[in-house]
């Protein structure tokens, strides 16, 4: 794996400068069923193709941003600040890929 991403603040950098936040998807807006909760916490769509992802410029400006990437080719289609993508509002930023399938779990790493 080796490619570059363009940080919306800093510009083009090696992928190893960034932290990967996983595919973008929305946190449930209201109380989920236990099954929905576990799906949200533990299941990923794992798309073979284009998906929207969270990235963190760990060795740079330390900002989170959204990228659209082809997981088969590692081609990065665009990167953008969260407010430039999707609707505003809690849990709804940058949700969903172009196909609108954005209702599954986010991928927050354990922070410890």
């Amino acid at each position: 794996m080796s490619y570059v991403l363009s940080c919306p603040n800093c510009g083009v950098r090696e992928v190893t400068d960034f932290g990967f936040g996983g595919e973008v998807s929305a946190r449930p807006k209201s109380r989920p069923t236990f099954r929905e909760l576990n799906t949200y916490n533990y299941f990923r769509r794992n798309v073979a193709g284009v998906q929207r992802e969270w990235w963190f410029h760990r060795s740079g400006c330390r900002a989170w941003f959204i990228a659209e990437r082809n997981t088969l080719t590692n081609e990065v289609l665009f990167t953008a600040r969260p407010e430039e993508v999707g609707e505003a509002g809690p849990g709804g930023r940058g949700q969903g890929g172009p196909d609108g399938r954005g209702e599954d779990g986010p991928d927050r790493p354990a922070a410890a």
Binding site: G19, G21, F56, A63, W64, E83, G89, G91, P109, A111
Partner: peptide, 20 residues
């Protein structure tokens, strides 16, 4: 915590990026 300092900052700023 000392070891969690960086990760907590990432965690906070991530939710902040999401919640605006």
């Amino acid at each position: 915590t000392s070891s969690g300092a960086g990760a907590v900052e990432e965690w906070f700023s991530w939710w902040l990026a999401d919640w605006a």
